[in-house]
Amino acid sequence: MRIGVTYDILRWEERDILEKGRRMGMEVIPIHLDEVIFSMDGNGVKSQTLGEMDSIIQRSISHTRAYLTSALMESAGYMVFNGSSTIERAGNKAIASSLLSSRGVPTPKTVVGLQREVALKAAHTLGFPVVIKPVEGSWGRMTAKAEDEDSLWSFMEYQEGTSLKYRNVFYLQQFIRKPGRDIRVFVIGDEVPVGIYRINDSNWRTNTALGAKAEPVDINSELRDLALKAREVFGGIFLGIDVFEDPKEGYLVNEVNTVPEYKNTARVTGYDITGTLLTKLREASRK
């Protein structure tokens, strides 16, 4: 079994995949994306730099590169996890929220507008405070909470002044009064084996990249069902799903991460995420 790992920065996760894979008797090949070339002509897409692979795990830290190279590797005939369509749809918060909503997965109330005045008006249907996020973003970057119309207006102005692709698209969301934490659950294949609370008493943004503390969470059947429902929407073999606990509405799916980091989860739970991922990958590659 030959499995490729495409990456840019070698984080703890990528290193663990290389080491565990070898220990499990698989040939795991690191593929630094800087070195990859795709050639295309009338005879199809080829990448000599990639060679023969049974499947490929996408671990690029860059959303753009992950999406693009998953798509090109698919065209070249490789089996890639996660695939480009999963990465594309989950990585765009506007599209992701719309898909969750249309498939009946509980998710925070959200409005998307393409013009500042119009979006501001729509924000009133959510009630303040309102959360504004870049349509494509991560690690909590540029996610802001506007207490009133005045500050929301300023945040929108600031967003328009950035170089973001979606700087003129306003993604606004009701602020969920979650209890100083949110939940990150992992879907691996068709299982939901592990998750953590991400706890932060001083920052409402509970990304571990922003200092939240990780603690193991019990995956009850409701959480499991919710995570599997999200997987039905986006597909993919490995997902990190952010869930909020709303005091009134219960669990809400906030977003789905398609190249999830799991160092902290592995550390505090002791669960071997990499091992399960590789086992699922081996099963999928045989199909």
């Binding site: 630094h32 800087d34 070195e35 830290i61 860059s62 959303h63 753009t64 590169r65 494509e136 973003g137 991560s138 690690w139 970057r141 170089s163 973001l164 990249a209 990190g240 991460n257 190249v259 999830p260 980091e261």
Partner: peptide, 21 residues
């Protein structure tokens, strides 16, 4: 990074706008 098939060092890139999980 790899330069002419040998390992070399460069200043690490700043965190990109599209980086993260």
């Amino acid at each position: 990074f790899k330069k002419n098939e040998t390992l070399s060092l460069r200043l690490a890139e700043e965190v990109g706008e599209d980086w993260g999980e």
